[in-house]
Amino acid sequence: MELILSAGIGALTASGVYLLLRPRTYQVIIGLSLLSYAVNLFIFGMGRLRVNAPPVLDPGGVGDLARYTDPVPQALVLTAIVIGFAMTALFLVVLLASRGFTGTDHVDGREQRHD
């Protein structure tokens, strides 16, 4: 399970960084989204991977921490998802504004010339 998760995070990060460095604004926004997925999974993983262990206490089931998983990273990941989503939406608006002003989807607002 650890191997699958870390390989997944690695693949997401690699594709995210690659797309982030591309010249089209749409590629940049997809890159940022992939990167934020990778980061969210990473935060989740930092609470250690546990199967069949709830993050909240059962009614009456106090004590024995071995039966529970760490709730803090799950709370953190929730906040990170919300903030990341809002920022992506905002970036999308700026992307469209840039497209409207310059008539191109190049990040510098003008096409590079290939002579």
Binding site: L35, G84, L90, F91, A97, S98, V107
Partner: peptide
């Protein structure tokens, strides 16, 4: 607004989103 600000803003936001990650 205006093209210069939107272009600078685009770069500023992309850099800061990456930094937030």
């Amino acid at each position: 607004s205006g093209p210069v600000r939107v272009k600078a803003g685009l770069h500023y936001i992309a850099i800061n989103l990456a930094a937030s990650s």
